[in-house]
């Protein structure tokens, strides 16, 4: 994954260059300070209890030097450190840029493309083209971090935030959520797949992946939209009720009423999870998927649930 100093973007390379010089600087000052300290500790160790010591109280010259020198150094680091960042924060306006809307929600990422296609967890982008991410959260704070591209920005419910990159090397790159967002924060992972021009053409024509059956697509969504984080498919207890044997099961609601789970109940619970909660499960855990999943996707997930008997 993110091995040190192997950024796959030009901008990432610039960041690494700064990172590298800062490491050298840190090591230099650390060694310099502590070598002097340890030398003095040994050189002036007590040899006899009544040993004479110098009454020296300070030196204006030294104070002046070690005020001015660090000031110059940190000023230079600041200026040196603005460059790559400034580029990072200036969104490209190239004609051929790709703008993707990123939605963060507990605990998965979804991506909407200009042509209307929606991906979950896995983002596909063309090699060598600038990609601008327009990001928004539907629940709590998240943060979109692609270590190999050296970019990160929080994903916030009240405003859009932006991020951009231009990846030059095809491959799959890790995405982390880096703002604590609750139980499955550490499972809110994703991938950015950088496709070669040929693969990108295939992807745009829906030829890159085989066509899936509704159940297969439902199973994929179960993982990618992070249903799996809270609903097991083998009956084991988790944050939410298990999907095993869910269809047709009689469940007691928080208000004591009994409901037999059917298609209508599942659609309602996916869109508005807090309306009819199964007893024993706290409200507010599951985000609403209303508008986050298409009707067809919801049907496919239900088709998948039906297979878990």
């Amino acid at each position: 994954m993110s091995s040190f100093f192997s950024s796959v973007t030009e901008l990432g390379g610039k960041v690494d260059f700064i990172q590298f010089w800062l490491i050298l600087l840190m090591v230099f000052w650390f060694v310099a300070c502590n070598a002097v300290m340890i030398y003095l500790m040994l050189r002036y160790r007590e040899r006899s209890p009544d040993q004479k010591t110098s009454p020296i109280k300070g030196s204006h010259t030294l104070e002046f030097i070690w005020t001015v020198v660090p000031t110059i150094i940190v000023a230079l680091i600041f200026l040196f450190g603005v460059g790559a960042w400034s580029e990072m924060r200036t969104m490209p306006t190239d004609e051929d840029r790709l703008e993707i809307s990123v939605t963060g929600q507990k605990w998965s990422w979804s991506y909407k493309y200009p042509d209307g296609r929606v991906e979950a967890s896995d983002m596909y982008v063309p090699q060598g083209k600038p990609v601008v991410l327009k990001m928004r959260s539907v629940d709590v704070l998240h943060s979109f971090f692609i270590p190999e591209f050296r970019v990160k920005e929080d994903v916030v419910p009240s405003i859009y935030t932006y991020l951009w990159f231009k990846a030059d090397v095809p491959g799959s790159y890790q995405v982390f959520c880096t703002e604590y967002c609750g139980d499955n924060h550490s499972a809110m992972l994703g991938k950015v797949h950088v496709l070669s021009p040929e693969d990108w053409q295939k992807y745009m024509k829906n030829e890159l992946f085989p066509v899936l059956t509704p159940v297969e697509e439902g199973e994929q969504l179960y993982v990618k939209r992070a249903c799996v984080g809270c609903h097991s498919k083998d009956g084991s207890p988790a944050i939410g009720p298990t999907f095993q044997g869910l269809m047709g099961r009689e469940e007691e609601m928080a208000d004591g009423t009994m409901i037999v789970v059917d298609d209508n109940y599942l659609v309602e619970s996916i869109k508005y999870p807090n309306r009819k909660l199964v007893k024993g499960y706290p409200a507010g855990q599951m985000p609403s998927y209303d508008g986050q999943l298409t009707d067809e996707q919801i049907e496919n997930i239900i088709a998948f649930i039906k297979t878990l008997q």
Binding site: L25, C33, I77, G81, R150, V151
Partner: peptide, 24 residues
């Protein structure tokens, strides 16, 4: 000894370009 490490490692966190990566 430890505080020189603490202080110096503050530098890449104060530097904008490198903090974006190291943040959180």
């Amino acid at each position: 000894f430890l505080f020189t490490i603490a202080g110096l490692t503050g530098l890449p966190l104060a530097t904008l370009s490198t903090d974006v990566f190291l943040h959180d």
